[in-house]
């Protein structure tokens, strides 16, 4: 599985997007929520991702995702949403894994 992280530009970010996204990834990795061999990386234009974690600073969620192919997408856009984002990602991953069986 390949997970890409895409950030908005951060003009009105109400929280530290980099830190919170890092914490989401850390939690996912540490509790073994991700299938073995999962790659988590900063999204690269043109690449295909099973899941695109789009980290935005506000409700406008204006990150341009047009250049990132993805099967599922999860948005994070507000402070104190680390746990809900982890839960949301887990749900999506389960969906992807079960549809692959």
């Amino acid at each position: 599985m390949r997970i890409g992280i895409k950030y908005c530009g951060g003009c009105r970010a109400g929280y530290n997007r980099g830190e919170d996204a890092g914490e989401v990834v850390r939690l996912l990795l540490s509790v073994g929520h991700l299938p073995e061999g999962t790659i988590v990386e900063v999204a690269e234009a043109g690449a295909h991702y099973d899941l695109l974690l789009t980290v935005c600073g506000c409700t406008n969620k204006c990150a341009d995702i047009s250049e990132y192919e993805h099967r599922e997408i999860v948005y994070m856009w507000e402070p104190d949403s680390i746990e809900s984002t982890v839960a949301h990602i887990r749900e999506k991953i389960e969906g992807i894994s079960s549809s692959a069986v």
């Binding site: 992280i5 895409k6 950030y7 908005c8 530009g9 951060g10 003009c11 997007r17 980099g18 900063v42 999204a43 204006c62 990150a63 341009d64």
Partner: peptide
């Protein structure tokens, strides 16, 4: 920086 490249 990927955190700002979308605007920059």
């Amino acid at each position: 920086d990927p955190e700002y490249a979308d605007l920059m």
